[in-house]
């Protein structure tokens, strides 16, 4: 069996070329989009020929593509992520400012969808074809079909506008700085709706995966053996059926973490949460190449780390993976 630390080391080693490919690829992609940062800026305010030339020079856009790419990659080596022209601040600052909110939103959404999804999946899968299973399957299908932004808006209408249970948006109450526990509760209260909007689709997915895995497991020999041994139904459900059905769900967890960065663009806009998703959108419309790359790289690192953690969890559940 290979020790865990070597797997971690190998994975992180593999991450370097991945990061490089992502950086160069995104740089080229954004270069292919028509118009540059100066065009984006001028589309808002206009300006004369002198101003146009002055801005291109100030923002270094008068240099050739190859020069800009090389100098960007070189500064990346020194962990300098460059200057964001859209925000007139260093990229590192802008990204770190927003990263916390996105991580918070993502982990809240993952926690919600994973815990509730698997539990409901167990509820459905423990007695396939029962009325409970049918009801949950129907519910999960409806949730799965609903787009996140629409769910978000409907939740705003119902729970924020009509019932006033939750705030309309934002990450914390504006103008009333709070401290300690009060602040934590305030943020949690602000996160309920956006985390639900982001997580409900995955909740449905986990529910269905869990249920399907369990239906499959019920037919296995080891379950028959367990029954023959005279184990209680409850023990069979939790120790034998659910545990084995959990493996594909864990795989999904890794995928979800990556896909959520994409979904958060929409949810962050609807709920006015200043996070990485919205920032990425602004970076593209402003043609702010260093900023977009900063976000993409931060996202890549995040995904790599999450996948690593998922693999560790996988190994814990199923020791066979460490052997291969």
């Amino acid at each position: 069996m290979i020790p865990v630390w070597r797997i971690v080391g190998r994975r992180l080693g593999n991450a370097v070329p991945v990061l490089l490919i992502v950086a160069i690829g995104s740089y080229c992609l954004l270069e292919l989009a028509p118009g540059d940062a100066v065009d984006a800026y001028l589309s808002g305010s206009g300006g004369d020929a002198g101003l146009v030339a002055q801005l291109r020079q100030q923002w270094g856009l008068d240099r050739s593509f190859a020069t800009r790419l090389t100098s960007y990659l070189l500064s990346l080596l020194t962990l300098d992520f460059g200057w964001s022209v859209a925000f007139s601040r260093p990229v590192r600052e802008v990204v770190l400012d927003r990263m916390g909110n996105t991580l918070l939103l993502m982990s809240a959404a993952v926690a919600l969808s994973f815990s509730l999804g698997t539990l409901l999946g167990v509820a459905a899968g423990s007695r396939p074809q029962s009325w409970r299973d049918r009801l949950l399957s129907w519910l999960s299908l409806a949730l799965y079909a609903a787009p996140g932004f629409w769910l978000g808006l409907m939740m705003i209408v119902a729970f924020a506008v009509k019932l006033s249970w939750f705030p309309l948006g934002g990450i914390a109450t504006i103008g009333e700085p709070r401290a300690g526990l009060e602040h934590v509760l305030d943020v949690a209260w602000h996160l309920v709706l956006p985390a639900s909007a982001l997580g409900l689709v995955y909740l449905a997915l986990y529910l269905r995966l869990m249920r399907a895995g369990m239906v499959e497991a019920w037919r296995s020999d080891y379950v028959r053996t367990a029954r023959a041994k005279g184990l209680t139904r409850q023990r069979i459900v939790w120790r034998h059926v659910a545990r084995n059905a959990l493996l594909p769900v864990i795989t999904m967890l890794g995928l979800q973490a990556a896909a959520m960065l994409g979904g958060s663009v929409v949810v962050e806009s609807v709920f006015a949460i200043p996070g990485l998703g919205r920032l990425a959108f602004e970076a593209v419309t402003q043609r702010d190449v260093p900023l977009l790359l900063g976000i993409v790289l931060a996202g890549t690192v995040l995904v790599i780390v999450i996948n690593l953690l998922v693999d560790m969890a996988y190994a814990k559940l199923d020791p066979r993976v460490l052997v291969s």
């Binding site: 118009g35 540059d36 940062a37 065009d39 589309s43 808002g44 419309t285």
Partner: peptide, 14 residues
């Protein structure tokens, strides 16, 4: 169809 930067470039420069 273009976004703001693309449109500005297409009409007023290119």
């Amino acid at each position: 169809n273009n976004d703001a930067a693309g449109h500005t470039r297409a009409i007023y420069t290119d």
